[in-house]
Nucleic acid binder design. Structure first.
Lengths: 325, 325
DNA sequence: ATGAAAGCGCTAACAG
DNA sequence: CTGTTAGCGCTTTCAT
């Protein structure tokens, strides 16, 4: 109850508070005193007060991760990668869900600053997201998944992934390939759609505007796009889904319309870890989310360590494989 | 860079630091001074230092949420519910992934204590999880999904859910109904399996031990159990899956073996938001994860507010509905 | 190697 | 209503 402090430990061990602090910070202390301190710590069940330490050093042993959708497995997979690297280095990860809302995002950035977070990893809600509330003062930020501001970034090869997904459908014999992507103001959504157009043009086909749908990056968006695409007369025979959730929506709705693969070709950009259909049901361009997180976390740790090289950009390639694994 | 403090604001506004503090804490201050402070705050871009505030008050405006698997949509849905309630009350939610490891869990609890978290919500890794590292000192803890220690808890009606899932398969005409559940040392897994047995006995059938499989609460576990159950001669004709991920694994593997519903009956306890099959493919006993989170968060806020009634137990009922929605 | 002492930025008595 | 003052628990010079 009555919290024990380094003063209690110091008294119990017959040393000064400074010495107790030194023991905890690995600063040279004579073996006898160190031992006495350790005994006192055990006896009193002392746990150092991180808040005090943070206030004094202006540096918490924690980094914040700001993502637009905590319910998207893509981001939780990424979060796992980040956590593994960060915790190895003794940092906690504080997960913040911006919900794609720039205001919430800004608020989290301010909180991160005012709680002395050592750094921030962010999948920005918008390309114009202002990182200054945290980055001002030289605090390190690394952008993940989506570029933002003038900081390090780790992103996927989105355009190539879009082209690759389209190419696979083409190779499977489909010729009217639609594309369902996320909001046009999100870089990843645009790039993947551009990849789709690239692949068609490379095969001598001019992409039809009617075959490109921009929607939300969510299951419901995929369902709606299928309804839009398959209600008219000039139906597509295949669909490229711009992210994992859109892919789920597309597959769900196609199944309900009795148009599921192989009747309709489907290629998804992103993994489907919770698909309930067999692995070869749809083509999947797997995006290495976990690896992206790990890479970004390592970069952030370097920045925290004082690295001040110019901003770097790392691009990770997707990989074609059976669904979900 | 040079952080501005309430002292800077005070000087700029021609008042004392205490008055600045009062403005931020909604304590009565004369309109003129309040206005002067507000102007100074804007002019200097002052952001209050939460670490200092927390150190002084021994109370962070944040609660920790400890869960065993951040990649399980069940827990992220719950996390959303918690976040909505907590943030409404001005609290941040710090998400901690214990990975089902009691050591990691204990470590997070210690960190929560030493960072003065206002409270903790925990889906305990084990029924013997020790909450003391945080709860000692009277700090409030609410258990979610799984009971733990002698604190408030919000859980699902697991046994009833197991029985309900089984009953639906029975009503659909299946008579050799297997059960695939999580680790036998996890309360939720045991309870759901007990519900399965209840339902069979209620129909005059003694549950066969060979038809009950305990595994991990993960996709791979569901796949393995299907292999075990369907390799012999006395195959089941239906399967109750003890959680969402097991359900995914079961459905995946059955599809690969060409035994997917309706050839085999499948009932899943928990939602399948990312299923790629139509809604009526499998029976789903939806568990209100979001609501569980919201309820637990409200209880925690009450405790933080000083409520010290004896521990409460809230049980939420599942609901039968088409898959995933 | 060790101790004394001065804060990190804020809030909460306590006077006035 | 408002200012002064004394810490919250820790780290870090600066002496010794």
């Amino acid at each position: 109850m009555a919290v024990t402090t380094i003063y209690d430990v110091a008294r119990e061990a017959g040393v000064s508070p400074a010495t107790v602090s030194r023991v905890f910070n690995g600063i040279s202390v004579s073996p006898e005193k160190a031992e006495a301190v350790r005994r006192a710590v055990d006896a009193l069940g002392f746990v150092p007060n991180r808040t005090a330490r943070t206030l004094r050093t202006q540096h918490a042993q924690a980094v914040a991760l700001v993502i637009p959708d905590i319910e998207n497995p893509y981001y939780t997979e990424m979060a796992r990668g980040i956590e593994d690297i960060a915790s190895e280095a003794g940092y906690s990860v504080v997960l913040c869900n911006s919900d794609g809302d720039p205001d919430k995002e800004a608020s989290y950035l301010r909180i991160a600053a005012s709680t002395h977070m050592a750094g921030v990893l962010i999948a920005a809600a918008s390309p114009t997201s202002d990182l200054a509330p945290f980055a001002a003062g030289g605090r390190p930020v690394v952008a993940v998944d989506r570029r933002a501001g003038d900081v390090d970034a780790v992103v996927m090869a989105n355009r190539e992934a879009g082209a690759e997904a389209t190419a696979r459908l083409w190779d499977a014999g489909f010729r009217r390939i639609a594309c369902v992507s996320g909001p046009a103001d999100i870089e990843t959504a645009r790039e993947r759609a551009l990849g789709w157009a690239d692949a068609l043009r490379a095969r001598g086909v001019e992409p039809e505007p009617a075959l490109l749908q921009h929607s939300t990056f969510r299951v419901e968006g995929g369902r709606e796009c299928v309804d839009a695409l398959f209600s008219g007369v000039d139906r597509p025979d295949a669909v490229v889904a711009g992210n994992n959730l859109l892919g789920v929506g597309v597959l769900q709705r196609l199944a309900e319309l009795d148009l599921a693969p192989p009747r309709t070709g489907v290629a998804v950009i992103g993994s489907l870890p919770f698909a309930t259909t067999p692995a070869d049901f749809a083509t999947v361009v797997r995006l290495p989310a976990r690896e992206m997180g790990m890479t970004a976390a390592r970069m952030l740790l370097e920045r925290i360590g004082g690295d001040d090289e110019p901003p770097r950009l790392v691009t990770l390639r997707g990989e074609v494989r059976p669904a979900g694994r």
